[in-house]
Design a protein around this nucleic acid. Structure first.
Lengths: 409, 409
DNA sequence: CGGCTTTTGCTTGTTCATCGACAAAAGTGC
DNA sequence: GCACTTTTGTCGATGAACAAGCAAAAGCCG
């Protein structure tokens, strides 16, 4: 802040210390993963060395922080260094898609330790699907030799609107039987740990950011697959909107879709002309034998000109909507993900072409439009992130410290 | 949170108290304006009565809280009640428009105590315009008999992109000479108080929310005047985007604008067909003698059918873009403001027509599209809010308490 | 190999916030 | 008018957090 506040003339010694009152706050400094010495911590927080030493002791006993050898000596005894230990606990992350379920075991840093994917239609209903999730969770834990008390929490992504606070799906269009289902309760019957649920696109945005854009405060993740959706991170925070339906790009109207009927009932929706299914349909109408978005991608990879052109056009259509998003949200990174992102540069070229042409110069000088780097793992990474955000927050650490100290592997 | 955290079995007495550690935090409870008794505060915070009593004493000495008589006795000594005292300090709020300057003196609750408006083109440059602002500020303070030490801060809205953190305009299109100007420094040379600067549409959103939608977390304020812009409040927080240009609705492409050249150089911008100037131009081309948006409104008020139709069409065009915003941001309230909002229901009818037709049912069941209630005062109310947010935050209150205690009027 | 430097662990004393109790104040109800 | 109830302000006690000081440990440097 560049503000001048006349109330405080110059004596700042007591006010500066407001910072790290508890061990949980001190831990936030260590979360960056870099090793710290006690002296460095004392210096940046302004706390006494003895205080810092006590806090660090506490954190090391809980296992969240471990010693990582010594730093170079500067003429005297070398300082010992320690850092956040992501392996202190594990997280179960589940990505429930329209027709598949992916479950991963990750550490607190989001690194995937084990993973399993299965075909499983979400239309089978919550008990069946979540039953499978719970089974797989148990199996992954057992195989990895991870005792239950090491489990920090479970994150779950669902392919529809979710009321994040309660973890219940809200009138999801493609999840029959799931409306209002108590996902948290069901899962906690098997694992007595925090369970966090969110929309799949939202957690993909979280995952992509946590893994590859940690310093970006305004990021838009666009999922292009059977449908089209987005997760919005503004001011470093996931934005869910009033009803948890924010980021619904699929049913935004685009000029070129005029007259095309969408599955939502309206006409002109982006999804009706640029989703994987829509592109395949358009090509099939031209006489090209394709039945799905995946086949279009395969064709384009093989050099088929119509397929390449169709993908590029889909990119332009998406870009049309993204240009509006840039005007509206002014993100610094737009990430294109989802299964259709496998078409790589074909779609990207179309997106970039329109976005950079249609957006105001001030908002595009710092704008990057990139392909997802997390790929298929974006969702489980995000689900893991959802949990680690919760568990590693100052309050979460305090709670863990107050509870039993769990040993580290 | 409905989360089950096994780390804490049942003994919650020390953890519950984490809440209100300082007087600034306790003050946040009192900010609602309702009167509280000490017992109520102790009950909701879990603090001891004696502790609460001390905090309240501190706050009353600073003047931010005053006694407001006694509550009804329930058989014993009646409890004394106290509440936030908005008159404890005053705020200067300036709304710099393209061709006018409005300066208001408000209290901490945002109530306007005195106000002055003058024609003053922003193109005269920062020294001239801000010189006028500072002069007017001084005059308002003197006339209201407000001593300098009662002034809590100054909020300023400017008609262009502003880097909020530094208070400097960033390449503003209609403010020659203002690019990068140190607004904060200039004003603080005259008044040694916090000075907060932001985009005018952003503060209008803040003002509308603070005054009329205090409980709404997701609000979109749309200003329709010479240009078209918006201020976005998501998760209760003003969203400025990566470069401070978020909410720029004016240059979003709309289908009906195809081929119409906008002042920004692109074609198809919303502003080129739906702003006050654009509507007037369109009517003039049809042979109706109008030169400005204000004249169109006057004509429509007089019953001119072409004017009414033109306004309604502008509403539809704006609604087209707002439907996209609803998909993207899922707000619970959209407020239409700016000078063209004086056309009232003509524009609103068009907006509602399209928004409710084009947006998904889940996002519109709780959506309200309303006219600005703050009207011309939205900007100064928002500027005031910008300052009060800063000053009445826990940290702000702590700082004020640490400084000198100022008497109350 | 010994002096020097730097970190570390421990201990001690101080400070500060909070709590609980108690007596005075200020009402109600009989 | 008196007993009872409820709030209020004050006071001492408790306990946690913190800063400072000191000796030991563990490396550099000559």
């Amino acid at each position: 802040m560049s503000l001048h506040d006349p109330a405080r003339p110059s004596e700042e010694s007591p006010a500066e210390r407001v910072f790290a009152a508890r061990a949980g706050d001190l831990f936030q400094l260590l979360r960056d993963g870099r090793p710290w010495t006690r002296a460095e911590l004392a210096g940046t927080t302004g706390l006494a060395r003895s205080t810092v030493a006590g806090r660090v002791d506490l954190l090391m006993h809980s296992g969240f922080v471990v010693s990582v050898g010594e730093a170079l000596s500067s003429g005297g005894r070398p300082p010992s260094r320690f850092a956040f230990h992501p392996r202190a606990r594990t997280i179960l992350a589940a990505d429930v898609g329209a027709s598949h379920v992916r479950v991963a075991l990750t550490d607190l840093g989001g690194s995937v330790l084990a993973e399993e994917r299965a075909q499983w239609p979400v239309s089978d209903g919550p008990e069946a699907v979540l039953g499978h999730v719970v089974d797989t969770c148990g199996r992954l834990m057992a195989e990895a030799g991870c005792p239950p008390e090491r489990l920090a929490g479970i994150g779950i992504g669902l392919p529809g609107p979710v009321e994040h606070a309660t973890g219940r799906p809200v009138k999801p269009p493609i999840m029959p039987g799931w409306d209002g289902f108590d996902v948290v309760g069901f899962v906690q019957a098997a694992f007595a740990v925090p369970v966090l649920v969110d929309n799949d696109v939202n957690i993909m945005a979280l995952g992509e950011r946590a893994g590859f854009w940690p310093d970006v405060e305004d990021l838009l993740f666009v999922k292009v697959a059977t449908g089209i959706g987005s997760g919005i991170i503004s001011s470093g925070q996931l934005q869910r909107g009033a009803d948890g339906t924010a980021g619904d790009l699929g049913h935004v109207r685009v000029a070129r879709g005029e007259g095309v009927v969408c599955r939502c009932g309206n006409t002109g929706c982006l999804e009706a002309i640029a989703s994987g299914a829509a592109v395949a349909r358009a090509l099939a109408a031209e006489g090209v034998a394709v039945a799905s978005g995946a086949e279009v991608i395969a064709l384009a990879a093989g050099g088929s000109l119509p397929a390449v052109q169709a993908l590029r056009q889909a990119g332009r259509d998406i870009g049309e909507v993204l240009a509006t998003c840039v005007n509206l949200l002014n993100p610094s990174v737009i990430v294109i993900g989802g299964s259709m992102a496998a078409a790589g540069e074909h779609i990207m070229a179309g997106v970039r072409e329109v976005v950079y042409h249609r957006s105001p110069p001030l908002a595009t000088t710092n704008l990057r439009v990139v392909l997802s780097r997390a790929g298929e793992r974006a969702a489980v990474m995000g689900a893991s992130q959802l949990v680690s955000q919760h568990v590693l927050s100052p309050a979460g650490i305090e709670a863990a410290l107050a509870g039993s100290a769990v040993g580290v592997g």
